[in-house]
Design a protein around this nucleic acid. Sequence first.
DNA 1: CTGAAAGCGCTTACAG
DNA 2: CTGAAAGCGCTTACAG
Lengths: 331, 331
Amino acid sequence: MKRASIKDIARIAEVSVATVSYVLNKKEGSRISEATKKKILEVAKDINYTPNKIAKSLKMSKSKLIGLIVADISNDFYSNIARSIEDEAMKLGYTLLIGSSDENPEKFRKLTELFSEQQVDGMIIAPVVDSDEAIKRLISEEYPIVTIDRYLKNVSLPGVMINNSEISEFICDHLVKKGFDEIIYVGYDTQLPHLLDRQDGFDKKIAASGVSVKRLLIGIHNITEQVHTQLKENLNLKKKTAIYFSSNKLGIAGLRYLNDNNIKVPKDVSVIAFDETEAYHLFPTEVSFVQQPLIDMAKESVKLLDSQINNYLPDGKRVTFHAKFMERNSV
Amino acid sequence: MKRASIKDIARIAEVSVATVSYVLNKKEGSRISEATKKKILEVAKDINYTPNKIAKSLKMSKSKLIGLIVADISNDFYSNIARSIEDEAMKLGYTLLIGSSDENPEKFRKLTELFSEQQVDGMIIAPVVDSDEAIKRLISEEYPIVTIDRYLKNVSLPGVMINNSEISEFICDHLVKKGFDEIIYVGYDTQLPHLLDRQDGFDKKIAASGVSVKRLLIGIHNITEQVHTQLKENLNLKKKTAIYFSSNKLGIAGLRYLNDNNIKVPKDVSVIAFDETEAYHLFPTEVSFVQQPLIDMAKESVKLLDSQINNYLPDGKRVTFHAKFMERNSV
DNA sequence: CTGAAAGCGCTTACAG
DNA sequence: CTGAAAGCGCTTACAG
């Protein structure tokens, strides 16, 4: 698997490696005769030359690699983000390294380390709980980073996110106005700021409304089982109830519970979920959901990273996108 | 963002870079005194040293990078595969580059080129139609490659796949035995061998059965719309009909059509789908489906690649996994 | 218009 | 037990 190098081209074309490099990189400044140019290009083609980007990276201290750390690439939400990031990154000439943290700070740290050792030019990350130290380490090394979806409480980093609190306020208001006896908030038992925001927005409005409320907080493992157990214990069909699922996983788990137990939506209970997934469309009733502008967020995250890499970004710029309530038939 | 190198460690610890390298790599052969060892490790920690894998890669001609080319990372099927590949790759010390081909041979070729220039140690690929040339190019460069999900007709490459033909035969038999008037096969209008196999298995059995059959072959773009149109035109509810959707995308599109048009499963029509997705569980009826052992396939693909990279694999080894029919309530 | 040379950060065979 | 040196495949300031 020994591949041709510019040295080989130089030898065969009887020029110096410098000249080869100039020609291959189409540098304008240095005028090379058309004759040698042509010869070099021919030889390159003949011997199937492909540049070694690793060597170039080493010399240039630029790898054109960016690292993406998500919680789990097999989660619809993140795989959709990854796809848009991939497209945008390619446009700007970057190749994408991907890793999943599983919400585990140790895995997260290892990924940052790995990516940093691979000399990625920057990282797009979805921080996990207790990842502050790993991130501070990156910052101290002046690593370009952009957060996506999530953000850090104590560190100001460029990033993209949605208006979590506001959209939850809106959803809560919407449900309150419909006159439910009880509203159930299904969220995670977590310290992730963006999820706390989601809950806070809801809490603020529900408190003001006086409507009866239950909060089911789910641990991040065995989500499906936990959601089932909690709903079983807490869902009272005698009351006119609405459930607000604050993530796609929670929504899917909850809808599955309703389906399995033959609970009709919106007849027996009303539902609003978070994030879009094809599954919502296959449910007996089309599910109303909160839609994040994933493509725009992903694209913006790459742009933010790219400007950081090229040093023309004011520190800590955070871009907030607006989530949209997509009303269907589940309320 | 200038990071410390072994040169810096050498200078501060007052030893040679060779010695630093030996210590950091814990080479046993060369005995270094405990004192210098300790000193070097201390200095390394003090100045926050992290190895530059790009430099190492260049020297060693091994990048510990592997490239994964799927059709679309935002497709559930591939993101699940990617996740398992990621886990297995990490275990073996590889980092994963990911790219989506969109079934486009030109994009596919670009990705192979990109990955090859980035000096990945090998690639796991889902070939697209007309990608033979790009792949032959890789082979001529003796690039370790493993195919996943799909395979090539004219080139013998190590890879993992399922028994596409057999499982379709099984599904067809199963439906024939249930005594349907008509069976509709929904597949792709494509030349991809593994999908043709899927269709061939079905065709073989349906021909022998004498049951009335329709084949709806869908182009790879605007799948949802096409499936809707085709089903609208071809689904005759007066006959006792079963539909076999031969991919997850087709299944989801088809089930959505049935849902939107209030067609009941299995009362009005019976359904079997391919691949697992959460969406199948949210459908009014639990959908019977063909399950591929994704995790095992993904793990095996990494192992195959790793053995190829390390040169202890007989050429062209192909591993066929057995898909499983998961019977639910949709027939 | 073209080339010799230094250097990016590593590893390792060799010498002492 | 330790170091000097070569080399992986590039780029580029400099000289001619």
